Computed example of a mutant assay.
Amino acid sequence: MNVYNYHPITKEYLGKTTLNDSDKNPLVAGEYLIPANAIKQWPTVKAGDKQAVIFNGSGWSLVDDFRGVKYWLQTGEHGEPVELGEPLPIGALNYDPVALAEDKTAEYEAKQQAVTEEVPE
């Protein structure tokens, strides 16, 4: 018999465990003892990109999973979601706009300097 395990805190699907004879209920013939944080129902959904499968108390469902995704805001503030279901902030960027602006400014100034040096007096 297979059971499907989930994390005790996040409820995230962890994988399948196959029960064997040592997991049989000694008091009820033909019945297995189901471990904690496991259910008999296999996951009925499949996670896509930036999603996770969780046990919602009665079955399996999907939540956003942006853990580990670094983001920046226009202000230069940055962060990284740490919990399942935690959304990215509105206006989040996948690059540092302040660093990009500094790089573009330096690039522009270098080109201006090169042009200035080329102009004969």
Rank of each mutant, 00 (worst) to 15 (best):
E31C: 00
D103P: 03
V63W: 00
I34L: 13
D49T: 02
G48P: 07
Y95V: 13
E102V: 12
R67N: 05
N20T: 00
Y95I: 08
K11Y: 00
G48E: 01
T44V: 05
K24E: 11
L33M: 10
G59P: 03
I54Y: 01
S22E: 12
V69Q: 08
Y32I: 08
K16A: 07
L73D: 03
P120D: 14
M1L: 04
A101G: 14
G48T: 08
E77C: 07
A101S: 13
S58A: 04
L84C: 05
T105A: 15
A52Q: 12
N20D: 09
K104W: 10
E102Y: 07
K46E: 05
T10A: 09
V115A: 00
V3M: 12
P43A: 11
S58H: 11
Y108Q: 09
L93C: 15
N56F: 05
Q112V: 02
P26M: 12
N2P: 12
G57K: 02
A52P: 01
E109N: 12
I39R: 12
G85F: 03
I54R: 03
P43Y: 03
V53L: 12
K70N: 12
K46Q: 05
K16P: 06
V28H: 14
D64E: 13
G79A: 06
L73Q: 10
V45P: 08
A52H: 00
G57H: 01
K50P: 01
F66N: 07
A101Q: 15
P89N: 11
K40T: 04
I39N: 00
V53R: 06
V53G: 06
K70M: 01
G30D: 15
K111G: 06
I9W: 03
T10I: 05
A106H: 08
V98R: 09
G68L: 05
D64N: 13
D64G: 14
L33N: 15
A52N: 07
V28I: 15
A52K: 07
F66L: 11
P81D: 01
P8L: 09
D65E: 02
T105Y: 15
T44A: 03
T116I: 03
I39Y: 04
E121H: 13
W60T: 02
N5T: 11
K46T: 14
E77D: 07
L93H: 12
T10C: 04
L88V: 14
N37A: 10
D21V: 08
A92P: 11
K40W: 08
N5Q: 12
Y95K: 14
F66D: 06
A114Q: 05
G91R: 13
M1I: 02
D103M: 01
Y13D: 00
D23N: 13
K104D: 12
Q113H: 02
Y4N: 08
D103A: 05
N25F: 10
Y32D: 07
G48D: 00
D96H: 09
N2T: 05
V45I: 10
L84F: 10
Q112D: 04
K24W: 07
K11W: 03
L93Q: 15
P89M: 10
P89E: 08
E109G: 03
L84S: 04
N5R: 13
N20M: 06
G79Y: 05
P43S: 09
N37W: 10
G91V: 15
L27C: 09
Q74A: 14
A38N: 13
K111L: 11
A38C: 14
K46H: 04
P8W: 10
I9N: 00
L33A: 13
K40S: 14
